[in-house]
């Protein structure tokens, strides 16, 4: 196996719940609660889960756009969780992010060329403005936007084009890893496939590694090499894509897959309908966090939290009964 580019070890991120005049902390939202995983060079890891499962917080915490409470973020052998903010800023040259909403993630008062060149300026990548803009032009062309549009503002572009600008901005620093945080979720079907194809091509061209966050399992299946499933701040299953989809172990992951509507009128499958809603991450259930909605839950599930165990080579699952 190739080397790990990124190692996340026991990462924890809680957000305080504050109440009253003195903003006293009355509780914690356990957004990410002790997760560990690795991302290997050149692969695409799909991070999947429903709203509130902590997948976005995971990405933001890795980039230290949110400060982790505990845990280590080891990137190319260096622990990023302890370094100074100014040093972290330098590290971010190698780690970029593409956001979900192409409307709010681009500054409406900046020209497209300045949005893309901003990072180059911060990291002193080019000698002068002319060279920077020349590079901006190349990047725009690469992502499918004519270079002469660089003087325009983001509102002059459609959603798909804006997402292309967001991709150009992430590419500008020649990063090693890009976190795609629901990067195609807000796009129309016909535009989404254009962006997915673009991301795939760029990965090959620049030898990129992706942490691809999405709630749509069809997209995850198409783009990922490995899959990580989160539920209420915990990782519940990690596996190779093929293994994951053919031999899903965790009851939640099984339900998630069975819930996806498939555009094939003859596709027969057993649908697992989960009862109830996702509990609040401020007060997750004791034991296994999934047990109140799990059809296979037994007594132990309400008492003991299952650990993420390697069931088969490269296939991890956090369920007391996943070996059965």
């Amino acid at each position: 196996m190739t080397e790990a580019l990124l190692q996340v070890k026991n990462l924890v991120k809680f957000f305080p719940i504050k109440r009253g005049v003195f903003r006293k902390t009355v509780g914690w939202i356990k957004a990410v609660d002790d997760i560990s995983f690795e991302v290997y060079k050149g692969e695409t890891v799909g991070l999947v889960g429903e709203s509130g499962c902590g997948k976005t917080t995971t990405a933001l915490t890795i980039l230290r756009l949110e400060e982790p409470l505990k845990g280590q973020i080891i990137f190319e052998g260096k622990d990023l969780s302890k370094i100074k903010k100014s040093e972290m800023r330098k590290e971010r040259k190698n780690m970029q992010i593409i956001f979900q909403d192409p409307y709010s993630s681009l500054d409406p008062r900046m020209k497209v060329k300045d949005i893309i060149a901003e990072g180059m300026l911060t990291h002193n990548l080019f000698k002068n403005t002319r060279e920077r803009y020349k590079r901006v032009g190349e990047l725009l062309e690469r992502v499918g936007i004519p270079a002469e549009y660089m003087d325009r503002f983001s509102h002059e572009f459609s959603g798909g084009q804006r997402q292309r600008i967001g991709i150009a901005r992430a590419l500008a620093l020649e990063p090693k890893i890009i976190m795609c945080d629901e990067a195609v979720s807000a796009l129309d079907v016909s535009i989404r496939s254009q962006i997915i194809n673009l991301l795939k091509d760029l990965q090959e061209e620049y030898n990129l590694t992706y942490l691809f966050i999405a709630h749509d399992l069809s997209v995850i299946k198409y783009i990922s090499d490995r899959v990580i499933v989160m539920y209420l701040g915990k990782i519940i299953e990690i596996a190779d894509k093929r293994e994951f989809f053919s031999n899903t172990l965790h009851p939640y992951a099984q339900a998630l897959i069975s819930a996806v509507p498939v555009p094939n009128p003859d596709y027969k499958k057993e649908r697992i309908i989960l009862s109830g809603d996702v509990p609040s991450p401020a007060d997750p259930p004791a034991g296994c966090r999934f047990h109140p909605r799990c059809a296979k839950a037994r007594k132990i599930c309400a008492e003991v939290e299952p650990e993420l165990k390697e069931v088969k080579e490269g296939h991890f699952c956090a369920c007391h009964f996943c070996a059965e």
Binding site: S158, G160, Q161, D188, V189, S190, I191, R192, S193, Q194, I196, N197, K200, D216, L217, S218, V219, K221, Y222, I223, F245, I257, V260, V262, P263, N264, Y267
Partner: peptide, 24 residues
Amino acid sequence: FGLLTSIPRLDLELPRLNAIPGVV
């Protein structure tokens, strides 16, 4: 036809998505 071949599928292994060019 374009829509049907441009979506990632859970039931199939697709080599490459057949994107519809241009914008709505």
